[in-house]
């Protein structure tokens, strides 16, 4: 992968050196967070499957679902999986609404068994997984946030510079072409990385936690304003679902970029902290 990476380099082969890219706290919290998010997504889909529909407002009035999954009987007596989004209905047999369960039998279920934890239908166990790892996500996230602010990691590594923001279009074009300039391959994060990390760390993840808490009748009694912020318990449930979708989309692009920009170099950096970069002749400090 290293030679693949070097081939993108404008000057051909470069002498390489290691920089210390990720501090220990960032590495540990990154992997704990990855594990928590995976479990939360899969157990969350198990919980969603107990009532595979989403609504606006406080209540889940029948016929007013914004999204709904289920099985419908066809004219020939067979069944198909149906996903309804707004006024549109899609046949999603085999994946959403109707799919093969762990025993191989077709069953009515929102998300398929290979996307739920446990794979079989078990809301109680799905909840146990979800809330254990939700605590993991929150406590790990707090450790990360305290470290990121206290150590200057957030300001130094995550906040985009004015120069980066001015050249955001060039960065965007390079990303779309999967061409990373020597500088962007280098020591710090590029501007799109910074913005997407900031959006996830300070946007999507806290929003997912807050909308999750809004679904708690106890916390709604303690903090009634949560219901007003999110427009009711069922709205909060829908936003929670959309956050999960957004985080999943981020992870897919994130893993894609890791593959495109050098799997082993990135993995080594996130495990040992050491990241291989071309040696630069000029001593210009990072952007």
């Amino acid at each position: 992968m290293d030679s693949h990476q070097a081939s993108h380099d404008s000057n051909g082969q470069h002498a390489r050196t290691f920089v210390y890219r990720h501090p220990l706290t960032v590495r540990i919290t990154h992997w704990v967070n990855a594990l928590c998010l995976l479990v939360l997504l899969l157990s969350g889909l198990q919980i969603f499957n107990a009532h595979p529909a989403l609504y606006f407002g406080e209540t889940s009035d029948p016929g007013r679902a914004v999204l709904m999954m289920g099985a419908e009987q066809n004219a020939d007596g067979g069944y198909s999986g149906v996903t309804q989004i707004g006024n549109y209905t899609f046949n999603t047999t085999g994946v959403l609404g109707l799919s093969r369960g762990p025993s191989g039998q077709l069953e009515e279920r929102g998300f398929p068994s290979w996307l739920t934890l446990p794979s079989y239908r078990d809301l109680a166990t799905g909840r146990r997984w979800h809330f254990f790892f939700a605590w993991g996500l929150v406590l790990n996230g707090l450790c990360y946030l305290i470290y990121a602010i206290w150590s200057g990691h957030a300001r130094r590594d995550l906040a985009p510079t004015r120069h980066q923001l001015r050249h955001i279009r060039r960065s965007l074009r390079e990303h779309l072409l999967l061409r990373f300039s020597a500088d962007e391959q280098g020591r710090g994060y590029n501007v799109l990385q910074k913005l997407s990390y900031l959006a996830v760390i300070f946007g999507l993840l806290p929003l997912a936690v807050l909308t999750g808490l809004t679904m708690s009748p106890a916390l709604d009694a303690a903090f009634p304003f949560l219901l007003d912020i999110f427009g009711g318990r069922q709205s909060a449930r829908m936003i929670h679902f959309l956050c999960a979708l957004g985080i999943t989309a981020f992870v897919i692009v994130h893993v894609g970029m890791v593959l495109a920009s050098g799997l082993w170099n990135n993995m080594r950096a996130m495990i040992t902290g050491r990241y291989s970069v071309p040696i630069r002749e000029t001593a210009d400090d990072q952007t």
Partner: peptide, 9 residues
């Protein structure tokens, strides 16, 4: 508001 463990209200 009655919140069922299944997710509906």
């Amino acid at each position: 508001r009655h919140d069922c463990v299944e997710g509906w209200s």
